[in-house]
Design a protein around this nucleic acid. Structure first.
Lengths: 283, 283
DNA sequence: TTGACACCTGACTAGTTAGTCATTATTATA
DNA sequence: TATAATAATGACTAACTAGTCAGGTGTCAA
C-alpha cells in the first residue's frame, strides 16, 4: 500500500466521523503513524487530499456500474445488478458515502463541487443508457424523470445502512427497487422534466471529456505505472490524442493493454468514451 | 424584527454559502452590522445558534405540512397540496434546505443529529397518516416503502431548484409526483421495509413527546409571549401537565388560545399530540 | 441634571490550524 | 566504506477562531 492510499484510508474514517473541517492534518498523520511533513510529500494541501478521495471513489463506482450495465447478458437482470452493485459499493464504502453526501454541496470549494457534479452527470449518463436499453421508446417522454426517480430511491434507501448502520440485504432491496422502477417506467405519463430542463445535469465537459483532461490523466498514469507495455501504450495513446494517425483497432488494443491496471482503469474508461467505443457489448 | 431573527437570517445566508464551520461569528456579526458581544447576548454559543435555526425552520415546515394534510377537504387534493407545500417551503427557504441537507448528518454534534432525526421522524409520521387516509388497507404491506419513496422523490427533485437555482413550477412538479405516488401505491407488491425495520425511524421520544420537553417549551413561551390570555392559557396548560384536572374541552380551548401566536405554534402542535387531539379534521 | 439601567462594543485571551523548512535518518549507488 | 540521493521529521510561523469582559453609549424617570 502506498503512502497516499494509507493517508486516504485513515483520513476517510476521520472525515466520516467528524467531517472535513473538523479533522486536522495532525489528526490524520497521527492516525497514520507518520509526521506532518510526510503528509505534504504525498499531497500538496488538505484540499488536494479531499479532491483525490472524491476522484478515487467516484471513479471506482462509475467503472463498476458501467461494467455491469454493459456486460450483463440477460436484459432482465440489468436493473437488479445495477441496484445490487451500487448498494454493495455504498455499503462497503459507507464512510465515503457518508462523507460524500455531506460534502458534495457547493461549499468552501467551487472546484470540488463541479467535480462532484461531473461524476454525478457521468452516472446519470450510464443510468440513461441502461433504461433506454431496457424500455426503449416507451419511456422517451419520461426518461429524465426516471433517472431522477432512480436517484431518489437510491438516496432514500442508502440512508438505512449508511446512517443507521443496518445490515444490508442487497438482494431484497434490489428486487424491491426493480419492481418500483418497472412499475414507474410502465405507467408514468406525466413527466416533470421535459426536454429542456435536464441540460443542467449534463456533464460540465459537454458529453465529451476535453483533450486537456485526457492528457493530464495519461501523463499522471505514465508516472505511476510500472510495466513497459503499459507505459508505451499510454505514450502512444497520448500521441494519438495530439495527432490522430492510428486505426480504431490499434487504439482499442492500446486501451485494452492498460484497462487491467487499477490506476489506469479510469483513463481507459474516459478514453473509450472519447474514441467512441462506448456502445460495445461484451463479446 | 428581533436581534435573534436578524442574526438567524444573516447566518443562514452565510452557512448556506460556506457551511457552518467555515463561517465565523465575526463574519455573522459583520453581516448583521452588530458587534461580537451583541451576538452573545442573543445566543449562548455558536452551537446554540445552529440549534435554534434547525428548530425554527423544521417546526415551521412540519406545522405547515401537518395543517395541509389535516385541513384539506377534498381527499384527491391532499397529495397535491402536500407536495406543493413542501416544495414551496423548500424554494422559499432554499438557504435552509441547502444547509440542512449538508449538516443534518451525524457529525460534530450528536445532540443536533438526534434533534434533526426527531423532526424527520415527525414528518414521516405526518406522511404516514396522509397515505393511510388516502389509500387505506391497500398499502398496509407497503406503507413504509411508500414513505421512503416519497422522501426520495422530494429529495431528488429538490436538488433542481435548491442547488441549480432553477425557477420552481410547483404545480407541474406536484402533479407529476402525485401521479408517481399513486402509481406506486396501486401497483407495488414487493416492499423492502417489513414491519420490523422502520422502527429505526420512530421518533426518539417514542411517539409521545416527553413531559419535560413540553414543560421546557411552555416555559420558554411564557417568557416570550405578550398577551394576558395567552400567558394564562400557557400557565394553566403547564399545571394540567403536572396534575391533570381539566376536561378535554377546556384543554383544547386553551390550546386554541395560543395556536395563533407564531411563537406558540409549535407548542400547540406538540400539546395536541400529547393530549390526543391529533385526529381532528377541520370543522 | 443626575443617576440607573439595559444595551452594546471591540480589544483581548487562550486555543487551534494549515503549511514550511532546516535538520536528521534511511537507502541506494559507486 | 564513502557519497549522493531520497524520505521523513517536528518545531515553528502566521493566521484564524470562539468566547469574555471592562468600559462605553443611549434612554429613560425623577
Amino acid at each position: 500500500m502506498t503512502k497516499k492510499q494509507l493517508i486516504m484510508e485513515e483520513a476517510l474514517k476521520l472525515f466520516a466521523e467528524k467531517g472535513f473541517e473538523l479533522t486536522s492534518v495532525q489528526q490524520i498523520t497521527d492516525a497514520c503513524g507518520i509526521s506532518k511533513g510526510a503528509f505534504y510529500l504525498s499531497f500538496k494541501s488538505k484540499d488536494e487530499l479531499i479532491s483525490s478521495m472524491v476522484d478515487h471513489f467516484m471513479r471506482q463506482l462509475i467503472i463498476q456500474v458501467d461494467q455491469v450495465v454493459r456486460d450483463v447478458e440477460n436484459e432482465e437482470e440489468i436493473l437488479y445488478k445495477f441496484y445490487t452493485t451500487i448498494f454493495t459499493s455504498f455499503y462497503k464504502h459507507a464512510d465515503f458515502a457518508k462523507f460524500f453526501v455531506k460534502e458534495q454541496m457547493k461549499s468552501f470549494d467551487e472546484e470540488l463541487f463541479l467535480k462532484s457534479q461531473m461524476y454525478i452527470a457521468e452516472m446519470d449518463k450510464t443510468i440513461l443508457s441502461m433504461i433506454e436499453k431496457l424500455y426503449g421508446d416507451v419511456i422517451e417522454e419520461t426518461k429524465y424523470d426516471l433517472i431522477y426517480t432512480i436517484n431518489g430511491l437510491v438516496k432514500a434507501y442508502s440512508h438505512l445502512f449508511v446512517f443507521y448502520n443496518l445490515p444490508l440485504d442487497a438482494d431484497a432491496l434490489a428486487k424491491s427497487l426493480v419492481e418500483k422502477t418497472n412499475i414507474l417506467a410502465k405507467h408514468m405519463t406525466k413527466p416533470f422534466l421535459t426536454g429542456e430542463l435536464p441540460l443542467v445535469n449534463e456533464s460540465p465537459v459537454n458529453g465529451k471529456v476535453s483533450k486537456e483532461y485526457l492528457m493530464e490523466v495519461i501523463e499522471q498514469n505514465i508516472k505511476e505505472v510500472e510495466g513497459e507495455i503499459e507505459k508505451e501504450s499510454l505514450q502512444l495513446l497520448k500521441e494519438e490524442l495530439l495527432i490522430p494517425t492510428l486505426s480504431p483497432a490499434i487504439v482499442k488494443g492500446l486501451i485494452r493493454n492498460i484497462e487491467k491496471e487499477p490506476v489506469c482503469q479510469w483513463t481507459a474508461y474516459v478514453l473509450e468514451d472519447y474514441f467512441g467505443f462506448t456502445d460495445n457489448i461484451k463479446e
